[in-house]
């Protein structure tokens, strides 16, 4: 039977379907709750069970817990989308950084007739030491 997310005894309990969401996504979402909540996560059959218990000094009212539950549910989805982007773009990102710092050995001329594609000459850039 599917378990419902709930608020119980002043704590938020979330069941995250492990077939849909990864451990990293759960942990990355939880990270941002550690300032206000004691966070706890455990693995059950096909779910991660997340418990968020407000810290005594966090001044979180009982009636605010619904908001945090909703926020956490949304964060899980957001981080899962970010995970897709991260996974799909790992190679291109590595290639980009390698090309950026390679001193030319990975370079090929950009295709087409674009000579000054971004409108400036990178060699003429002043380096600012403002502080």
């Amino acid at each position: 039977m599917e378990k419902k997310n709930l608020i119980r005894n002043g704590e938020i309990v979330v069941y995250v379907d492990a077939s849909l969401f990864s451990r990293d996504v759960v942990i990355k979402s939880l990270y941002w709750y550690g300032d206000k909540f004691h966070t706890q996560v455990s693995a059950e059959m096909n779910a991660y069970v997340v418990v968020l218990k407000p810290m005594a000094n966090a001044a979180i009212k009982e009636e605010d817990l619904g908001y945090y539950l909703q926020k956490f549910e949304r964060d899980i989805v957001d981080f899962s989308l970010r995970e897709v982007v991260n996974k799909e773009t790992t190679n291109i990102r590595e290639l980009l950084v390698a090309k950026a710092f390679s001193n030319g050995e990975f370079d090929e001329a950009p295709p087409g007739n674009v000579s000054d594609a971004v409108g400036f000459d990178p060699m003429s850039i002043p380096i600012n030491d403002a502080r």
């Binding site: 291109i92 290639l95 950084v97 594609a117 990178p122 030491d129 502080r131």
Partner: peptide
């Protein structure tokens, strides 16, 4: 799969980090 302007992007990435080129100034 590989964007046609990847080298332009790489140049821009390098440019953004060019504050490192000269090391300590202040």
């Amino acid at each position: 799969r590989i964007p046609p302007l990847i080298d332009v992007l790489a140049t821009r990435y390098r440019t953004k980090k060019a504050f490192l080129n000269n090391f300590t100034m202040l």
